[in-house]
Amino acid sequence: MQNQVVSREEWLEARRALLLKEKEATHLRDRVNAERMALPWVRVEKDYVFDTPDGRRSLSDLFDGRSQLIVYHFMLGPDWEAGCPGCSFLSDHVDGALPHLNNHDVTWVAVSRAPVAKIEAYKNRMGWKFPWVSSASSDFNFDYHVSFSPEDLGGDKVFYNFTSIPPEEANDELPGLSAFYRNDKGEIFHTYSSYARGPEELIGTLMILDRAPKGRNEDSTMNFVKRHDEYADAPKASSCCH
């Protein structure tokens, strides 16, 4: 830490100057949010089917009676042993938000290509309650550009985050978030998607760290993150059965 140590008066002057920029960022965020709300929509024509603990469900079923659906594209491939640490980090922040989202006519669902049994096992390990389904039986992940076949990765370019990237910068699974709307006729529209660091603002821990003296204290994006049960001081799971 090499920060300059100054008087309270000098600190107040610097803090006021930063406050102006923080207000600019807030106003810019408001304008970006307004433009996000004004984006055109695309009608979803394909009938997607998902595997769930309660059987197969359509995309319409995932709305769970609400008009808005947020899908988190969670990185957990069919042959993965555990979920992505970064996706797990974000997902640690979801359960507390669910009552507020549901009350606001929004349903949150995580989607992965792993089979339901593997999803349920990892979900139980992490202690999460949010809905999580498998898209293994459909093209959903491929159509929304978060899963890539060996043929995709063997080509010259991969389409991710609305652009073409070298396949060596990709993986068989990548993160993202997509939003959908269902009207009274039952028609479904794709309204928004965000990839890479786009959903970062959903991770409240990062927003707190950004205000701590050392910030994120990282060498590369989120390189400090582990699954919450893998930290040295993480509580150990009980071996007792109840």
Score class of each variant (00 low, 15 high):
S7L: 05
K226Q: 14
M222W: 00
P53Y: 10
N171G: 15
R125D: 11
L19W: 09
L90G: 07
P78S: 11
Y231F: 08
D54H: 08
R31D: 12
E35T: 01
L18Y: 12
V225Q: 05
T191D: 03
D61T: 04
P85A: 03
H145I: 01
S164A: 13
E169Q: 15
R182H: 03
M1I: 04
S220C: 05
A97P: 00
R113H: 10
P199D: 07
R36T: 13
Y122V: 07
E22R: 14
G155F: 03
H73Q: 14
W132L: 04
D156F: 01
Y195D: 03
P150R: 05
S137T: 15
K123M: 08
E218G: 02
K157Q: 14
Y144T: 10
F50E: 09
L177S: 11
S220M: 03
G154Q: 09
P235F: 05
P199F: 02
D92C: 09
N103A: 15
F89H: 15
F159T: 12
F140P: 03
V106L: 15
V32K: 09
H27T: 07
E218K: 01
A14Y: 02
Y192Q: 11
F74P: 00
M222T: 01
A17F: 06
G55F: 04
K214P: 00
Y160L: 09
L177N: 06
E22P: 00
G127T: 09
L209N: 10
P175R: 08
S193Y: 04
P53T: 10
G86L: 15
T107R: 15
F224I: 11
S67P: 04
V225P: 07
H104I: 00
S58H: 04
V116F: 05
T107H: 08
E201Q: 09
F140T: 10
L19D: 13
P40V: 08
A117V: 11
D79W: 00
S91P: 00
V146N: 07
E24Q: 15
E120M: 15
L209G: 02
L153H: 02
D233S: 10
D47Y: 01
L206V: 12
W41H: 13
K129Q: 14
E10N: 02
D210G: 14
A232M: 02
G204L: 12
S178I: 08
A234I: 07
R16C: 01
A82Q: 13
H93T: 08
T107S: 11
V225S: 04
F74Y: 14
S220K: 10
R56V: 04
G155L: 09
K118H: 05
I208H: 10
F224M: 12
G154A: 09
E169H: 13
E173H: 06
K118F: 00
H242V: 09
G55D: 06
M75A: 11
V49G: 01
Y192V: 02
S164L: 15
D54Y: 06
P199W: 01
V225R: 03
V42Q: 14
T163Q: 15
G186P: 13
K46E: 11
A17Y: 04
F50C: 11
S138Q: 02
N161R: 11
F189V: 08
